[in-house]
Design a protein around this nucleic acid. Structure first.
Length: 352
DNA sequence: ATTCCACGGGAATCGGTGGCAA
DNA sequence: TTGCCACCGATTCCCGTGGAAT
């Protein structure tokens, strides 16, 4: 059924970006100085999750690369700090190297300056909660370094940034969800390459595109899930029932990957919320205190305080794993999908 | 009206580690 | 090698805010 699984991977780069021609042109224009050894413009790419912001940046850089090599780095900023971002940029630079995390940030910037003999483009992916005013100001101090920042909300992202730095972001590109026909075109292309021919109909692709509301990542994962389900069920081709069941599997897979990427404390809190079903903040803290001693005893980590737990919980929310409803004392936490199992096992509740 | 308390921003503090001088 | 310092990043501490409970 699946002949080439690569086209369903999140990091797959299609040779041509369908229905994004305008955005590719605009971004190319902003980066174009780099092929003439001039610093490129800074760019902000915004839009909802899964509509191809990262793919746009990588694809455009790759196209530019065909003319003349433009060194670039790709950094996922979620949870990163000012220092870690510039160290990572340096690490990914062709002449760069690893610096220890105790290196003063100013030294990292100095090293970047000394290494950059030509333009260097850094994709700041998932840059929503980046310490952005600092990072951008630092970046402005490195001649030849330019940024493609990727965020969900353009206005919100720009809000805390000083006018001076804001002016350096000359290009702002807004991507929106694809139309149903547009996304169906994209899925059709993936099916042509990735699936045995004729196993999925245009109507089914439209159905997927519609169900995921034009979010390409979700559509592509659903198509893949539908193909897997068809194979498991020994259907010769994808049937409508496989499509029906594909969405849940695709969503769950994205969430499971998110959960796995988080560190230990987050796993503990997720497990607690998962165990409870729905739980108020006070009760959650009590339960944490109950289980923490046992849970952390053969871990090098120590239990964290309430304030840190709140930070972890809001990260779980950002990752689409936990919902918080209600305000203040009325707040209730619950997991988005019960079927996404926690990675760690809870000690049994102590009997009363 | 008053008290309670979770939230979340920001400052202070702590622990770990590389670099350096002795 | 050892001891100290500078620094980062993680966590805690502090506190203003505002909705809920009394």
């Amino acid at each position: 059924m699946i002949e080439d699984g690569r086209v369903f991977r999140d990091d797959h780069l299609p040779r041509e970006l369908q229905h994004r021609e305008g955005a590719v042109r605009e971004l190319s224009g902003a980066l174009e100085p780099a092929i003439r050894e001039r610093p490129a413009d800074d760019v902000l790419v915004s839009g909802p999750s899964g509509v191809g912001k990262t793919v746009l940046a990588r694809h455009t850089l790759q196209r530019l690369q065909q003319h003349v090599g433009v060194p670039h780095a790709h950094i996922r900023c979620l949870g990163e700090t000012r220092g870690s971002i510039f160290r990572e940029a340096l690490r990914q630079h062709p002449q760069g190297r690893d610096l220890p995390r105790t290196t003063p940030v100013d030294d990292v910037l100095a090293e970047l300056r000394s290494v950059l003999d030509r333009p260097f483009v850094v994709i700041l992916d998932e840059a929503d909660d980046l310490p952005r005013s600092k990072v951008l100001e630092d970046a402005c101090r490195v001649f030849g370094l330019s940024m493609i920042a990727i965020s969900h909300d353009q206005e919100q992202w720009l809000a805390p940034i000083s006018d001076r730095v804001r002016r350096s972001i000359a290009t702002k590109i807004q991507l929106d969800r694809f139309g149903v026909d547009e996304l169906a075109d994209i899925l059709e292309r993936r099916a042509d390459i990735g699936l045995r021919s004729g196993v999925v109909s245009r109507e089914q692709l439209q159905r997927i595109a519609d169900e995921v509301a034009g979010v390409a990542r979700a559509g592509i994962q659903s198509l893949r899930a539908a193909a897997e389900l068809a194979r498991e069920r020994e259907h010769g081709e994808i049937r409508d029932v496989d499509v029906d069941d594909s969405f849940e599997r695709a969503r769950r897979r994205i969430r499971e990957a998110n959960l796995r990427s988080l560190p230990w404390h987050h796993q503990v809190l997720y497990a607690l919320v998962h165990e409870a079903g729905t739980i108020g903040a006070g009760e959650l803290h009590d339960r944490y205190d109950q289980v923490s001693e046992q849970l952390y005893e053969d871990s090098p980590k120590t239990p964290i305080g309430k304030r840190s737990r709140r930070n972890k919980l809001s990260k779980l929310r950002d990752y689409g794993l936990v919902l918080d409803e209600g305000k203040r004392q009325n707040r209730k936490y619950r997991v988005v999908d019960e079927a996404v199992k926690p990675a760690i096992e809870m000690p049994r509740r102590t009997p009363y």
